[in-house]
Design a protein around this nucleic acid. Structure first.
Lengths: 241, 241
DNA sequence: ACCTGAACACCGTTCAAGT
DNA sequence: ACCTGAACACCGTTCAAGT
């Protein structure tokens, strides 16, 4: 029916434009995405995009929503315990951020609010729910988990955007350069200097995920202790807030 | 000696310029900081800043470093357990991000690398060290804690920048707008809709801090179990990596 | 209905000229 | 030594004009 992925002179379309955004983002990870560059890639004038998106924020929103949807789909495709699936979802988020850095850099900023975003929220809530969390505890766990994943994924992406080659290898920017500084006033920084310089972004992400999910599991265990043991699966049994 | 804080025609200076940046950032939280606006505030041409900073990134770096230093100083000023002091430091980071959003929005991006930044690293390591963490565990805890604090503080700031008034009140952008969407495919999102919409940024931050510090305390307890009980305070006793 | 292209306001940055 | 001001390349966005 419709021509898909015809490189130039393709009939413009929200979906076709988002395809081009993601292609640009992964092809040239260090470059900003610009209407001009987008137009060149699509064989179209830079201002043609305004027929399909109100402004650049709406375009970014659509691209982010697509990426959010991809992360969920990948996470759902594999089996495992609720924690394994949630972990997979969160790690996939970070990996996709590194794949599309110029898009993902805005992740902490913009609420995509589309179907991909909703599927992501639903999946996080689902896995936590399966883990036994309900009510206030579920909301708190969702906050900690998704707030962490979004902010940290965006940070990873911004690393790549700002740092170029080095950052893509994993070096983290906020610790990459106490090169010649005098560290006598900061003894622990000096003592652990080499280890701190060796930290890479994905390891930080993984450490955070572990720390948060460990706590979430404990919250779930607390919930199990205080719940009615005869009816452990009651939906919304302790919806408090 | 030197005139301090004379609003216009003050002798330019790295420190005077950073003062002006922070003043601008807190006076008009929604506005980007621009050389033009900076020049107007200082009674000086926009391009005069290039005499004192190589480019805008260096200026941002200097401003961030000042803010990092402020957070540590505030945290050190109050007594308490290591966890309380670390928590105070992290919360102060978030609060200062909300105070200077247009500066703090870059926090996940740029490594200040100055004395304020080093003091911040030293303070985080110090409190964790006092909590009994050493070696690989200390580095892992530092990663989780500071990665979280920086990324999440930047996200809070970007919220304010992007969202304007509403965001400053605490509404979180990535959950603020599944307004008219059909939620039948996302039952848990629908069930917790009101609670999710009520989440605010600082609460997310606090939930994340709790989750991470709970896990860090457990790591410390594990360390205590495996350590030589006769020599619990040995510095770097189990430096592995 | 959809796209073009000139135009505008606003960025960061450079550089020759002033004092 | 320090600051000015014109200039440049590059943004997002608007709008009248094309087809």
């Amino acid at each position: 029916m419709t021509e898909t992925a015809t490189p130039r002179r393709a009939r413009l379309d929200q979906s076709v434009i988002v395809d081009a955004v993601l292609a640009l983002a992964s092809a040239d990870p260090g470059a900003r995405i610009t209407f001009k560059r987008l137009g060149e890639a699509l064989g179209v004038d830079a201002t043609a995009m305004y027929r399909h998106f109100r402004n650049k924020e709406e375009l970014t929103r659509a691209a982010l929503d697509r990426v959010a949807g991809m992360a969920v789909a990948d996470a759902r495709a594999e089996p495992g315990s609720w924690r394994q699936r949630l972990e997979r979802h969160l790690m996939r988020n970070a990996e996709l951020s590194l794949l599309y850095p110029s898009v993902a850099a805005d992740w902490a900023l913009v609420d995509p609010g589309g179907p991909g975003d909703l599927a992501s929220d639903q999946h996080i809530l689902e896995t936590l729910h399966e883990g036994g969390l309900r009510g206030e505890r579920l909301v708190r766990a969702y906050s900690a988990v998704s707030g962490f994943a979004l902010a940290q994924s965006a940070a990873l992406a911004q690393e790549v955007l700002a740092g170029g080659e080095g950052a893509r290898e994993g070096a983290i920017p906020w610790i990459s350069s106490f090169g010649g500084a005098d560290l006598t006033e900061f003894p622990l920084v000096r003592e652990y200097r080499d280890e701190l310089l060796a930290i890479d972004g994905l390891a930080v992400y993984r450490a955070g995920v572990q720390a948060i999910l460990d706590s979430v599991e404990r919250w779930a265990a607390e919930a199990a202790d205080t719940a009615d043991p005869a009816n452990p699966d009651a939906k919304g049994a302790e919806r408090s807030v």
